[in-house]
């Protein structure tokens, strides 16, 4: 039987799932609630100069890249398999669209993180 290339997508999905389970809620709290409401954290924590500095540091770059790309790979894998559950049998188009979005997002994240410099 033909070996499936699913392990590539599954390991990215798994890594994204692990990462989102570990830090997703915390990110929602910080970026969506605490900072905008000025609650627990200073309101200028995520100001443009702060975030630029963050994204220019190598650790900030690594963190941002991992969060953006792995969350995306995780999300599209789930969407793809949900489409399959809904009965999309010849799912080549869906597969290309889903994983294409993740690939594009990954490339964009890498590009953007590089052009903002160090």
């Amino acid at each position: 039987m033909k070996r499936s290339n699913a392990p590539i997508f599954w390991t990215l999905f798994g890594a994204g799932g692990m990462l989102s389970a570990l830090i997703g809620p915390m990110l929602v709290l910080i970026t969506g609630i605490a900072v905008p409401l000025g609650f627990l954290l200073p309101a200028d924590l995520m100001s443009y100069p702060h975030m630029l500095k963050f994204a220019q540091h190598w650790a900030g770059k690594a963190f941002t890249f991992a969060v953006v790309s792995l969350f995306l790979w995780h999300g599209v894998h789930r969407i793809f398999h949900s489409l399959h559950d809904l009965g999309l049998k010849t799912a080549t188009g869906a597969k290309l669209t889903c994983y294409g979005v993740a690939l594009l997002g990954t490339a964009l994240a890498a590009y953007s993180l590089l052009v903002i410099g160090f």
Binding site: M1, K2, R3, S4, A6, H81, H84
Partner: peptide, 14 residues
Amino acid sequence: MQLVNAEEGVWSCT
């Protein structure tokens, strides 16, 4: 493992 590795193996499971 050749059966496991195929799409029809474990990879059809969601």
